[in-house]
């Protein structure tokens, strides 16, 4: 299973990853991070195709992507 991890300490909640995710599995959460931003949560980890769209557009580099077996 591919894995997308959003680092809430780096995220500023701009929503670019949510907009560009082709599988629409990212969603801005309702909980604020310690910096006061709404950061995205992964709604369906199994649907991730590890295309790196979110990691490529993230201005802060807050998203890490790993490809599973």
């Amino acid at each position: 299973m591919n894995e997308v991890k959003v680092n809430d300490k780096l995220c500023k909640g701009c929503g670019y990853c949510v907009h560009y995710c082709p599988k629409k599995i990212l969603e801005l959460g309702k909980v604020r991070s310690s910096k006061g931003h709404f950061y995205p949560a992964v709604t369906d980890q199994e649907a991730c195709i590890a295309c790196l769209m979110c990691a490529t557009i993230c201005p802060e580099g807050a998203i890490e992507v790993a490809k599973g077996e």
């Binding site: 894995e3 780096l10 590890a50 790196l52 990691a55 490529t56 580099g61 807050a62 998203i63 890490e64 992507v65 790993a66 490809k67 599973g68 077996e69």
Partner: peptide, 12 residues
Amino acid sequence: MEQLYKRPKCIQ
């Protein structure tokens, strides 16, 4: 697991 993307180390 193969890490496909990681944040560069030469920024804080």
